[in-house]
Amino acid sequence: MAYESSELYTIFPVFMVLDVSASMAGGPLEALNDALPAVRKEMQSNPTVGEIARVGIITFSDVGRTVVPLCDLADADLPELMVEGGTNFAAAFQETRRAIEAGLRSLPKGTPIYRPVVFFMSDGEHQAPGDWTAALDGLRDRSWRFAPEVVSFGFGDQVNIDSIRRIATRFSFLAREADPASQVREIMNALIGSIRTTSTSFRDPGQADGLHLEAPTEFFTPLPPMTL
């Protein structure tokens, strides 16, 4: 077997799928916008994260948008997330699959990659016409080469807990803080911690297929996995 003759750097692909529907207006969206620079700072200051993790950001409301394609976030222009309309989970999952496919296909052949991880967060439930689970199945399709681990976070009073459980491949959480803005902050802290821990851990066949989550029970209630 011949190896590629160019430098191939190890990549840990991370996709943040963020709800920007109308219910996120105010504190929650401000907390999201405040947290993005912290994610970038981690990329810039910690070599064990910044040299490996590549991040894509997808927002969803009535439609799904890739606002930051998979990239080195240290060099990216961060978007200011804006409140949009309703909540369409199907659009979110379709756009996420597209973003994963595009991001990983663009890497040089033979690039060593971690299994992609999708961090999904929402304070609501699917409100658009039509079924959303087919799009979720497409994202989680085990026969797909780039099928990600999907970790879901729910928060706020209107969240549909069963949907949050169903979206996750194995791990889902409900934020426990008193107000939605604080919940978003803790979710983003958990996301940063999970990227850091997974990036710096190497090969563990027994613990979550190499995914290491930092979701302390002080701030999160782990939800039981849903068997489909």
């Binding site: 077997m1 011949a2 003759s5 160019s6 590549r54 991001g103 890497l107």
Partner: peptide
């Protein structure tokens, strides 16, 4: 045995820089 490419066939140097929507060489 598995064989690495001879040096004479190696491509020119590459830099890891973000291009377009991904980190590519």
């Amino acid at each position: 045995r598995q064989q690495l490419p001879p040096r004479g066939r190696e491509e020119p140097d590459r830099a890891n820089v973000p291009v377009g929507d991904a980190d590519v060489s």
